[in-house]
Measured scan of single mutants.
Amino acid sequence: DKPVLAIQVLGTVKWFNVRNGYGFINRNDTKEDVFVHQTAIKRNNPRKFLRSVGDGETVEFDVVEGEKGAEATNVTGPGGVPVKGSRYAPNR
């Protein structure tokens, strides 16, 4: 398990590439950019086929120490709701 650095952090999605399945979230508290992989998205938009977060979307997440620095995990919308997802992700 990766060491946990912070829990229930709010941030804004800087960018997310649906095809490659990753992007970055900017933390509201430290203004640090945190890597996010599609496997870290815990509550996906049920209408979306692929797990994703949308550019500019506000999300809540935990921060863990990854191999290359801070990574987001347990990604949801604020308060644990499903994320909205990327407009580029296909609908079901």
Rank of each mutant, 00 (worst) to 15 (best):
V83S: 03
V36I: 11
V59E: 01
V53T: 02
G79A: 10
D55M: 13
E71I: 13
E65I: 14
D1E: 15
D62N: 10
G79Q: 10
V83C: 08
P82Q: 07
E60K: 07
W15R: 07
K68I: 07
F49A: 15
P90Y: 10
L50H: 10
D55N: 13
N74E: 05
G85W: 04
N91E: 14
V59C: 05
R87F: 10
V13G: 00
R51H: 08
T76H: 03
E67C: 13
R47W: 11
D62W: 00
N20D: 11
K84P: 03
V75L: 05
G56D: 06
F61E: 02
T73F: 14
G80S: 03
S86A: 05
R87V: 12
S52G: 05
V75F: 03
F61Q: 03
P82N: 08
K48M: 06
F49M: 15
N91A: 12
G56F: 04
Y88E: 07
V63R: 03
N74T: 01
R92D: 06
A72I: 02
D62Y: 02
K48T: 05
H37L: 03
R51Q: 08
T58V: 15
V81A: 15
Y22N: 15
R92Q: 11
A89D: 06
F49P: 10
T73H: 15
V83Q: 03
G11V: 02
N45R: 03
F61A: 01
R92G: 09
T76G: 06
F49T: 15
A89H: 06
E65M: 15
T73Y: 13
G77H: 05
G54E: 11
T12N: 09
G69P: 01
G54N: 09
P90R: 15
P78L: 06
P46D: 07
P78I: 08
D62I: 00
K84R: 13
K68A: 08
Y22D: 09
K48N: 07
T76V: 07
Q8H: 11
R92F: 11
S52D: 06
E57W: 00
G77I: 06
P46G: 06
R47L: 14
E60A: 09
G23S: 11
E67A: 15
R92E: 08
L50R: 12
G54P: 02
F24L: 09
K48L: 03
Y88R: 09
P82R: 06
E60T: 10
N74W: 03
F49V: 13
G85K: 00
K68F: 10
D29N: 09
W15C: 11
A70G: 07
E60P: 00
Y88P: 06
N91K: 12
T58H: 10
V53P: 02
A70Q: 15
V36L: 10
F16S: 14
N45D: 09
S52N: 05
N91H: 10
P90F: 10
G56T: 03
F61D: 01
V53W: 00
E60M: 15
A70R: 14
G77Y: 07
E67Q: 15
P78T: 02
P78C: 04
K48H: 14
